[in-house]
Structures are given as structure tokens and as C-alpha cells.
């Protein structure tokens, strides 16, 4: 992960219409699953969960 300064590693969402593109997208059934998936991803990637406040979480390595 050294070369990349900042970047979106993944997006977790309950609304698959809100996000597209060349980034791993995880679709969750509900808010609880979204939070859980985001937390697991962040912990594994040593990254941080941010909220776009439109139903999408995105995971960023700082």
C-alpha cells in the first residue's frame, strides 16, 4: 500500500444505484450489515470508514 497516498479501497452501500466504477463495491441488505461489512473491511485494510451521507460508506487508506 506504500505507493498510493490516498485512495478509495472499497464502497459499501445499501443502494446500488448510487455507485459505479472501478472500485470494489459491497452491497448490503440494511444499515446494520453495511456497518458491519465496513468495519470488517476497514480493520482488515488498516483503513478508515467515511460516510457520504447518501447511503454509501467508502473506505479510504490514509
Amino acid at each position: 500500500m506504500g505507493e498510493r497516498e490516498k485512495g478509495i479501497l472499497a464502497v459499501v452501500t445499501t443502494d446500488k444505484n448510487k455507485v459505479t466504477g472501478a472500485v470494489p463495491i459491497f452491497i448490503a441488505e440494511d444499515e446494520a450489515e453495511k456497518e458491519k461489512v465496513a468495519l470488517f473491511l476497514a480493520k482488515t485494510l488498516d483503513a478508515m470508514v467515511h460516510d457520504l451521507e447518501n447511503g454509501c460508506y467508502f473506505i479510504v487508506k490514509h
Binding site: 456497518e35 470508514v49 467515511h50 460516510d51 460508506y57
Partner: peptide, 20 residues
């Protein structure tokens, strides 16, 4: 402010997870 962490009126970052 929403998910945005602030100290007084200065924005820091968006913290996504509610428990955090």
C-alpha cells in the same frame, strides 16, 4: 455535523461508523 467530526467550528474528517 452529520458524520463530520468538528472541534468548535473547525472540520476534521468524516467518521463513518456510528459506534466510532
Amino acid at each position: 455535523k452529520g458524520s463530520l467530526l468538528r472541534v468548535n467550528d473547525i472540520d476534521f474528517m468524516s467518521v463513518g461508523l456510528p459506534e466510532m
